[in-house]
Design a protein around this nucleic acid. Structure first.
Lengths: 254, 254
DNA sequence: GCTAGAATTTATCGAAAGATAAATAGACCG
DNA sequence: CGGTCTATTTATCTTTCGATAAATTCTAGC
């Protein structure tokens, strides 16, 4: 209890230091704790994001309050329930990587597709491959919350579909309406392989290849080489319909 | 309470049905609850595995007992604490996919590498790509428990290292002692892409490509095409040492 | 400086958690 | 059939959880 109080003071001093208005007129205040409702609410969401990333959504509200340097009932002045706080955390986490809007640059056909893909994955992974984002993502996925499903849907529709379409265009194939199930699956294997790099690095904390962008470049080279080879065989065998007996794996990419 | 009791009876009837010894001499017993210590213990571990897979390790011991059709304190007759039960669940889950020893067949060079890899991943994924195994794997990974780290280490040393070595052999390259960091990373991207297929299918419950082995075949084709292309460029540029300025991405696979 | 209002704390509730001790009841043996 | 052993249950303790109500302390505005 005593320790918590001292932490509270310390936190408030730090907070006061970078607050724009009211820069603590006198010397270092040891009791300055009050924040404006807006600041306090933001602080709750920010610290709760870190906290739930560490502990999972089963983490206690008292421990969370301790991290903020306040008492536990204060939470309920700002959020009706713990679940409402969690929803706010979701919004904070899931919306951030999408607001860049980088996926639109994928379709800029004035540049080679390899370059576009590389640039996209470098910036996208800058936003999501970190301990906090990945853990919140995994915890919410295991809970089966709607927002996680929505997000994965966005990845499929806004990112993977575009990636496939651009690869087809590059290979001289018709950029038909929808990718086939097998095309999508192969793109998923590539994409999630990259996500999993982050999981191994920031969650399992394994000594991975330090250069993230090199990993992306290698993965992309492998993916594009494989896809293009399949597309090449596909267009070669295109005129003659594949016989059922020789329905090869690459043919399945159609 | 009343309901729990009826569930208990039902469970015991079913249990009695497939018990080898003592096949319930009389008619269907409605109060037959007692199991031998060995059977009861196994039942605890089995049901706890399912339970923790569903609820996470934060799931309550009362709810677990309810699933067994017994009361909660009985757990402590068989396990000193909940943590000990969890450790037993770990053993049950993590050891199963390894006891097949399929990874050794990866090195059987009398057969083409493509065939060996396909067969291995088909049987390996038969063992681990299911809701229970994947959820326990993810939960324990987020908890950072030792056994998870150990398992990932086994995957790297027993599986990926072998995969890389066999691919190098196929490409006519020296199967040197250790794979490079970039080689390992590329293999990880491929491998975890396959795992993630299971996660999307059995945890996020997305409508994935139904034919698992087709997914594996496609992923393998892409991986091998990409890797072999890189290896080909590598051996072509081998005699002359790569200049620093043109140190390409594939060169990094060395 | 005083006061009003709001941010924060203190005190506390009921439910559910893991765990223990004592009582009960089913099964085996003579 | 009766007795003993033990698997199982009943009862209960202590914490910790999310949540609420009332008291308190800080701060802004006159």
């Amino acid at each position: 209890m005593r320790k918590a109080a001292s932490v509270a003071s310390l936190a408030s001093v730090i907070k006061a230091g970078d607050m724009s208005k009211k820069p603590a007129p006198g010397a270092i205040r040891s009791k300055q704790t009050r924040l404006s409702p807006d600041e306090r609410r933001k602080d709750f969401v920010r610290k709760a994001t870190e906290f739930f990333a560490d502990e999972g959504f089963g983490g206690g509200t008292r421990e969370l309050a301790r991290r903020l340097g306040v008492t536990q009932p204060l939470l309920y002045r700002y959020f009706p329930s713990k679940d409402d706080l969690i929803k706010e955390v979701y919004r904070n986490v899931y919306l951030k990587p999408l607001e860049g809007g980088w996926e639109k640059r994928l379709t800029d056909r004035s540049r080679p597709v390899r370059e576009r893909l590389g640039e996209f994955y470098e910036t996208y992974t800058d936003a999501i491959l970190n301990r906090t984002w990945l853990r919140i993502f995994l915890f919410s996925g295991l809970k089966g919350h709607d927002i996680h499903r929505d997000y994965v849907g966005v990845v499929r529709d806004q990112i993977l579909t575009r990636v496939i379409k651009e690869c087809r265009a590059e290979a001289g194939l018709p950029t038909q309406a929808k990718p086939t199930a097998a095309e999508l699956e192969t793109a998923w294997v590539f994409h999630s392989g990259i996500i999993y790099y982050g999981i191994r690095r920031y969650i399992y904390e394994w000594p991975v290849l330090g250069d993230k962008n090199l990993m992306i470049a290698n993965a992309l080279d492998v993916y594009l080489a494989g896809i293009n080879k399949a597309y090449a065989e596909l267009s070669r065998a295109k005129p003659s319909r594949a016989t059922p007996s020789t329905r090869s794996r690459v043919a399945a990419l159609r």
